[in-house]
């Protein structure tokens, strides 16, 4: 079963990588379009991301002095999602308890980094925000890729409808 999932996990990883790759390209596209004077197009991309990110320029990376449409943490999260779907970290799936521990550790890191500055324990840094987002994104995407592979592995094992109806008819 594990071998079957491993061999089938490349295509769902490709689908996920394409999806997250598109999101990452849009993030890079916003400042590039602005620098190329396509301000209206850049504005549409920024508006689209405004519903999922606060977009504070001081908390965002900049490309040639033009800020990205997402903050440090979101940039790390989206990049992590892309990395996790591209490379699919197998160590996360060693066992169910290891997977659970990895998810909890990544979630704890991102929550601690987000909440501690709000409480006043420490002032967060761009590197901290980016790296915790990257870690959470990578772990989450790796689990998501495994789930998609399992879903595709499950599908052919379902009984075909014809067989089921014959069985039902036979029982009646």
């Amino acid at each position: 079963m594990r071998r079957l999932i491993r061999s089938n996990s490349r295509s769902p990883r490709t689908v996920l990588a394409a999806a997250w790759g598109t999101v990452c390209s849009l993030i890079i596209a916003a400042p590039v379009l602005s620098l190329l004077s396509f301000h209206a197009a850049s504005c549409i991309v920024r508006l689209a991301f405004s519903c999922v990110c606060h977009q504070i320029p001081e908390r965002s990376f900049a490309l040639m002095a033009c800020p990205l449409p997402v903050c440090h943490r979101c940039a790390g999260l989206y990049l992590g999602m892309l990395i996790g779907s591209l490379f699919g970290i197998e160590a996360v799936h060693r066992s169910a308890s290891v997977r659970r521990a990895c998810i909890l550790a990544a979630a704890a890191a991102i929550l601690l980094d987000a909440l501690a500055p709000a409480v006043g324990l420490w002032t967060g840094t761009a590197a901290g925000r980016f790296s915790t987002g990257l870690l959470f994104g990578t772990v989450t995407s790796s689990v998501l890729a495994r789930g998609l592979a399992e879903l595709l592995c499950d599908a052919p094992r379902r009984p075909p409808p014809l067989q089921t109806s014959i069985l039902k008819g036979g029982l009646q």
Partner: peptide, 23 residues
């Protein structure tokens, strides 16, 4: 906006639900 929101909601809700099952 709806198409963009639908895409992100599908991706993130799936991520949330999958890690939820794992947890």
């Amino acid at each position: 906006g709806f198409i963009f929101m639908l895409t992100l909601n599908l991706l993130f809700a799936t991520a949330g639900s999958t890690i939820g099952v794992a947890l």
